[in-house]
Write a protein that binds this DNA or RNA. Structure first.
Lengths: 126, 126
DNA sequence: CTTATTAATGCGACTTTATCGCAATAATAT
DNA sequence: ATATTATTGCGATAAAGTCGCATTAATAAG
């Protein structure tokens, strides 16, 4: 399964790179100049996420958000990704928080994914 | 809107109190002796959550999980709720982690809800 | 440059999770 | 015992996301 470089993927990645906040499918679609199918968008985003290129966040609204994170350019093993995201319940913006967190797990537990989200009001909306 | 004490609510709360892990709608329904409508279960759970009686967790599978937390009995203002939950991707169990976390927000930001979830393999499944 | 291979896409159907409106029921107050 | 209205059940509906399959197009091979 070698990956191919397609128009759709380029465009989506460019949008994610240019966005200062995480986007869900709907937000992303509205930023697209060309029309890309919903299923394709999801497939592209999840492919990016699988490849460790972007970060996938599940919002407390239950939706999937995707963000291009700086340290995502490092090899997958070097990812920490234990940082929190903040979602403003008013304007919907989802952004990365700086602070990194270490949570200790009980014995015998292994961690696969980390999902830290705080929602509330951002400085513009409070 | 004064709350009334109903059979359904009692039963659901009893199950949540007796469970050592957070439950989603499906898990809860299977533990019910009497048949309670899906919509009712959701309404009861969300009412509990609004009242601060139980803790609502959004899994990385996008589903809503509910757990009766010990400190949920305190008045709502006293809730910290900044603890993590762990979800095993194999057996599906969602449980509370002990460690409490403090995340500092940027200036002007206010927090409404906290959602910290780590998924991976629990000691039974790894 | 042309052709073959197969990853990626588009379309439509489908699944799952959750919510909503409304009439019927039942918990509390009078 | 009766009135009030919170709660429930039912069915319809919404919304998010996935899947199968035929078609398209990116890369490799000749």
């Amino acid at each position: 399964m070698k990956r191919r470089k397609t128009q759709s993927q380029q465009e989506i990645l460019t949008i994610l790179k240019g966005s200062d906040s995480a986007l869900n499918h709907e937000m992303l679609q509205s930023k697209l100049s060309s029309k890309i199918d919903r299923a394709t968008i999801y497939r592209v985003l999840n492919r990016f996420s699988d490849d460790g290129l972007v970060h996938k966040i599940i919002g407390d609204d239950g939706k999937q958000y995707f963000a291009f994170c700086l340290n995502c350019e490092k090899p997958k093993e070097a990812h920490t990704h234990n940082h929190f995201h903040f979602r403003c319940v008013t304007c919907g913006k989802v952004e990365c928080l700086k602070s990194e967190i270490n949570v200790s797990l009980p014995k015998g537990y292994t961690s696969e994914t980390f999902n830290g989200l705080i929602s509330g009001y951002c400085s513009n909306c409070s």
